[in-house]
């Protein structure tokens, strides 16, 4: 019986090895199954998922107006101090004082892209952009001011 076992072991082993080779051979001969994305070449057609979190941006409309009220909810919501909001007092036409943002500073290098600030913002002033090529040579470039220069708050946003 030893002999029989010996040869059945050999038979089973060879069979299992050939099964494996059949699979790799299948893929070798079916080149249409290749999954590689030739990344820098397919830049033009590459589309990220619409919810992809690339970086925090503040959309402005054509009149250079944003929706940020400077309430600092996002700054509090951010777990790692990525957002710094500097506010200023603005005197309105009717003489009232109103808090406005001076600059919305966003440290992209600190951001974990956790989406908490977006969720926290009561006036939907910030969104996630689907950009992804963020590498720069100078770390300073990752500190961004999200509100455009001379931008104003949109009418009707409180």
């Amino acid at each position: 019986m030893f002999i029989k076992e010996y040869f059945s072991t050999i038979y089973r082993s060879i069979k299992s090895l050939l099964t494996g080779m059949k699979l790799t051979g299948y893929y070798f001969t079916h080149l249409n199954k290749i999954k590689t994305e030739e990344y820098p070449d397919n830049r033009a057609t590459l589309k990220m998922a619409d919810r992809f979190r690339g970086e925090v941006v503040m959309p402005h409309n054509e009149n250079n107006e944003h929706r940020c009220t400077g309430c600092q909810a996002c700054e509090i919501a951010c777990p790692n101090g990525t957002i710094k909001i500097i506010t200023k007092q603005e005197i309105l036409a009717d003489g009232k004082k109103k808090k406005r943002i001076d600059s919305f500073i966003y440290h992209h290098d600190l951001c974990t892209l956790c989406n908490l600030c977006i969720v926290a913002c009561p006036s939907d002033a910030i969104v996630m952009a689907q950009t992804f090529e963020h590498a720069v040579y100078d770390k300073k470039l990752l500190k961004k001011i999200l509100n455009n220069p001379d931008s104003k708050i949109m009418e009707g946003v409180e």
Binding site: T24, G25, Y27, F28, L31, K33, I34, K35, T36
Partner: peptide, 9 residues
């Protein structure tokens, strides 16, 4: 050969 077997280019 390796790449083609591993669904790569």
């Amino acid at each position: 050969v390796a790449a083609f077997m591993q669904i790569r280019l």
